[in-house]
Nucleic acid binder design. Structure first.
Length: 484
RNA sequence: CGGGGAGUGGCGCAGCCUGGUUAGCGCGCCUGCCUUGGGAGCAGGAGGUCGUCGGUUCAAAUCCGACCUCCCCGACCA
């Protein structure tokens, strides 16, 4: 058995069984664990720390674009959900209901929010009276419950965490601008902070949010070739403002319904990070969201506490001073080799090894998680060089994922070619589509692929051409993929 | 929700078919010694109502039933 095989012996290789690999990584790296109720998980401290980093970085962006945070109730009266017909129809199969309060049956049952358009719409109708009240730009961080039939940690759990933005605008144009602003904010966030390249665009009618006028989304390609929706931004039009009577008197003294948007990203993002970057040795966390960015492993030989520890502590302090999240692992019950493997499995981007030889030479050994590249660096250069190395790791993870995305995005002109790619290669397939539900359904039935998005920048490229499925005149160029 | 597989100390498994005292093994854990530059070694030790509930039986991890949970494949979804 080679060294490499020994190192990874207890993780199922990605290529052998992707989904087992995914589950094992989550449990062994202590991101999350199963709760005893179906479809529910505990986000453990290490996983929650990733979420906190995501929250912080996303929240900054949401606030920077003029939004403010608020909090709405967990429960929504049934009658509220029913006000928007498509909305209730879309969500009713997966709503959890509260029917009892203590020992008394409720007069009206309460939905545990599957999303908050209804309760927020109700409140907005109280708050919005004049054009001067607009726009309303509110976001909330909350938990959501959807009674899903098939669940998987982070990707689809009965309860999950998210942020949901809900805005009201004076005009349709403003709502559309907001919808696209958030879409691009999401794309920038995911690409910058999670190092995951995405394609963005509009959803087909079949795939749009229940109650929305239009749904836009960002989609990424996981390393098994399946697509994952990472964020959605909905232009709600006046669907909810009419259902909830959210009206205002406009600048011309006309009574009008507001134009709304809603948008969200969830703890699913963590699943995307795992599946985009991880390898057979475990997680690879992007430095921007890694709970531990740098781990220092002292080589504890001889009287290392005098020889090595002070130098290790000096590195720790120096790196903390420049704002890095650092862990110095001084535990004596584990050997350095054990720690190396452990932190690789947990996805720590950079490891610093320092032993007696290094201290004498005034240096330490740095090992990158992404490339496993080793380098030595003078001790007094740590604080100035390490941040740059982390940035390079972040950039390199993105490039690698970008290459994967590019290499797994294919064109298919004919239907046989389309089916062949879906069966044998997966990934995204770009094809022309006539716009009919019938073709979308047939493609799904034949290949399990759905339209992930119709990229906005490619709308004009639809041009003259034939639908990949029926051969009739195409209306759009769409990205198809099998999806989570 | 339909089809298939599984649940035995923290983890991975054996035992079940063919019921029979104190349910084994590897890893991990605890104590001590010794080690430490890629998951060290030795010695001693702790830890399990065999997923849950019920049934059959003199006797159930083992046979039967129901339920719970997980995994895989479908239909549904962030």
């Amino acid at each position: 058995m080679s060294k490499d095989e020994r190192r990874v012996k207890h993780i199922t290789p990605k290529t052998e069984d992707f989904s087992r690999w995914y589950i094992e990584i989550i449990q062994k790296s202590e991101l999350a664990d199963y709760a005893p109720m179906k479809g529910m998980m505990v986000i453990r401290p290490y996983g929650y720390a990733v979420w906190e980093n995501i929250q912080r970085l996303l929240d900054q962006r949401i606030k920077a674009t003029g939004h403010v945070n608020a909090y709405f109730p967990l429960f929504i009266p049934e009658s509220f959900l029913q006000k928007e017909a498509e909305h209730v129809q879309g969500f009713s199969p997966e709503v959890a209901w509260v029917t009892m309060g203590g020992k008394e049956e409720l007069e009206e049952r309460l939905a545990v929010r599957p999303t908050s358009e209804a309760i927020i719409g109700h409140m907005y109708s109280k708050w919005v009276k004049s054009w001067r009240d607009l726009p309303v730009l509110i976001n909330q961080w909350a938990n959501i419950v959807r009674w899903e039939k098939v669940t998987r940690p982070f990707l689809r759990t009965t309860e999950f965490l998210w942020q949901e933005g809900h805005t009201c605008h004076e005009t349709s144009e403003e709502a559309q601008t907001e919808t696209l602003l958030i879409l691009s904010l999401y794309k920038e966030f995911v690409e910058t902070e999670l190092a995951i390249p995405v394609i963005s665009g509009i959803k087909s009618f079949r795939e749009k949010f229940a109650g929305a006028q239009e749904t836009y989304a960002i989609e990424a390609l996981m390393s098994d070739g399946k697509a994952l929706q990472m964020g959605t931004s909905h232009n709600l039009g006046q669907h909810f403002s009419k259902a909830f009577n959210i009206r205002f008197e406009d600048r011309n003294q006309n009574l009008q319904y507001v134009w709304q948007t809603s948008w969200g990203m969830t703890t699913r993002l963590i699943g995307a990070v795992i599946m985009s970057h991880g390898d057979d040795s475990g997680l690879k966390l992007p430095p921007r969201v890694a709970p531990i960015q740098v781990v220092i492993v002292p080589i504890s030989m001889g009287n290392w506490k005098e020889d090595v520890l002070p130098a290790a502590q000096a590195i720790e302090e120096g790196l903390k001073k420049v704002g890095l999240r650092v862990l110095l692992d001084t535990r004596e019950e584990f050997t350095p080799g054990w720690k190396f493997s452990e932190y690789e499995m947990r996805g720590v981007p950079l490891r610093i090894e320092i032993g007696p030889r290094d201290v004498k030479a005034g240096q330490a050994v740095l090992v990158r998680r992404d490339t496993r590249e080793k380098m030595t660096l003078p001790l007094d250069a740590m604080a100035s060089k390490v941040p740059g190395i982390l940035e390079d790791i972040q950039a390199s993870l993105f490039r690698e994922a970008e290459t994967f995305l590019r290499e797994n995005t294919r064109q298919a002109g004919g239907y046989e070619e389309f089916k062949d790619v879906m069966d044998n290669q997966r990934g995204f397939v770009k094809s022309l589509w006539c716009g009919s539900d019938a073709c979308e359904d047939k493609i799904k039935e034949d290949t399990m692929a759905t339209i992930r998005v119709i990229p906005l920048e490619l709308k004009s490229q639809a041009g003259p051409g034939a639908c990949v499925c029926c051969g009739k005149e195409a209306k759009a160029l769409a990205y198809f993929a099998r999806a989570y």
